[in-house]
Simulated assay, not measured.
Amino acid sequence: MNPSASGWINKFGHLVKEESEIFPNFEILYQELKRTGFVYGIHIDIPKFITVEHNLTEDEIAKINLLNALYFTYQFEKKDSDFERFVNTVFSYYQSLEVSKISFLNKILSGSQTESQLEKLIDSRIYLGGNAFNRAFGNSLTNSLLYVDVLIFRIYLQAHPSVIEHARLLEYVTINIAYQALNSKETQKEDDRLVQLLDSSLTYLDLDQANLDGTYRELFKENFTECEKDYFMDMACLTLWEDKLLDRKEWDYILGLGRDLNKSEKEVKSTLDFVQFFFKKNKSKIGYLNDKNVAVQFYEGMSKNVGKLILRNSKRLKKELAESKELVSLLSKSATKELDAAERKKVQNQLLDIFKTIPSLAIFMLPGGAVLLPIFIKLIPKLLPSAFDDNRVD
């Protein structure tokens, strides 16, 4: 399956028909979403029943996991595996949240509600309107509170009378917990980045109007579900994970929160252990934990994005390159020796002419896009036919 090519949701619907029993209940699904990092807003892995032909980017992983979480939540609540009804329900759900007021979904929620339109909706939900250049910095532009969409979808399916109000409430409590957990630490270090990440991920809540003084605990008297309480505890442990050994102030905070959420000390410790294990296992893959300078982050991020674009458009690129023998000759020469200024200019101009004919490669036409050409040239040998037609349903 290729989540950046048309037809990936149809392919998911085909694959999931054979896996209706893979998650017997919501709790098992939640544990899977923690394993993949989706609950933490850190997109590491996808469900094991989905096979892909290439290495996925973080946004592709996020798209797959969001769709997977929404689909099985629908199945649990409605006892219905009809994929077309699921697609229509997801559209109705986002409309009920008044997300049409949010510019990135304005056009998508109008017109026919097809799987193709759902692809656009999920794509926009992940990107939050960010462009290719600022998405190059990784997790900081990926929605870290996507799991809230799943929790709200669940209560929407249960015909909750005030879905949008509950959505704001969930975000409000979550961001409060993150701030209070951070304030319980003697030193903040990397965790500043986590709270900034959460700030930029709010969808339903206006943070300027939010009270972050700790009085949110009174809201635990509200009728939160056990799944929502589990999420609150995970977000608190997520903020405290770095030390691996908590000081007394941090431990008192997390135990106090546990009591407010009706969690035992054993349950709190188990949640914290899982978070620490997850980060220890995946630290090298988590962008905001790496102390790389901005230039390195940008280059690495753009290398991933350009690599993805090349693979997704390899069939068209191979055809265009085959029709330009001089360009192929110069590219081959550049692999073994330095091109002179005139040759480099010729390569640049001919490549840009090719990119003009492929809309998804418009990034190279943006101001400064030419600096990405060395990345493209380096990745040309990776033009593989297997990157195409991987959403075909036999």
Rank of each mutant, 00 (worst) to 15 (best):
M1W: 10
P3M: 10
S6M: 08
W8G: 01
W8P: 01
W8D: 01
I9G: 03
I9M: 02
G13Q: 07
L15T: 12
K17Y: 05
S20C: 02
P24L: 10
F26S: 06
E27P: 03
Q31Y: 12
I42A: 06
I46G: 05
T57D: 00
T57M: 06
D59K: 15
Y71G: 08
F83N: 08
V90Y: 10
Y93L: 02
S96C: 07
V99I: 13
N106C: 03
K107A: 00
K107S: 01
T114V: 08
L121Q: 01
D123Y: 14
S124H: 08
I126V: 11
Y127D: 00
G130T: 08
A132K: 14
A132T: 14
N139K: 06
S144P: 00
L145Y: 10
L151R: 15
I155T: 13
L157Q: 09
P161H: 10
H166Y: 13
L169I: 02
Y172Q: 04
V173R: 11
A178S: 04
Y179C: 04
Y179W: 09
Q180H: 15
A181G: 12
E186I: 11
K189C: 00
L194R: 14
Q196H: 08
T203Y: 05
D206S: 09
D206E: 05
D208G: 12
D208H: 15
F220G: 02
F224A: 03
T225F: 14
T225N: 10
E228M: 09
K229T: 01
Y231K: 08
M233T: 01
A236K: 09
T239V: 07
D243E: 13
K244L: 03
K249A: 05
E250W: 11
W251H: 13
I254P: 03
I254N: 06
L257G: 09
G258V: 05
R259H: 13
D260H: 15
S264G: 03
K266Q: 06
S270D: 03
T271P: 04
T271D: 05
L272G: 07
V275N: 11
K281L: 04
I286V: 12
I286R: 14
I286Q: 09
L289Q: 08
V294A: 12
A295G: 08
V296M: 05
Q297E: 01
Y299P: 00
M302C: 05
S303I: 00
K304W: 00
K304P: 00
L309P: 04
L309S: 12
R312Y: 01
S314M: 03
S314F: 04
K318M: 13
K319H: 12
L321K: 15
L321C: 07
E326F: 09
E326W: 09
S329Y: 10
L330G: 14
S332D: 07
A341N: 10
V347R: 15
L351I: 12
L351P: 05
P359W: 05
S360V: 04
L361C: 09
L361D: 02
F364M: 08
F364I: 10
M365R: 15
L366C: 05
P367R: 15
L373I: 14
I375L: 14
L379E: 02
L379F: 05
N391M: 06
R392E: 01
D394P: 15
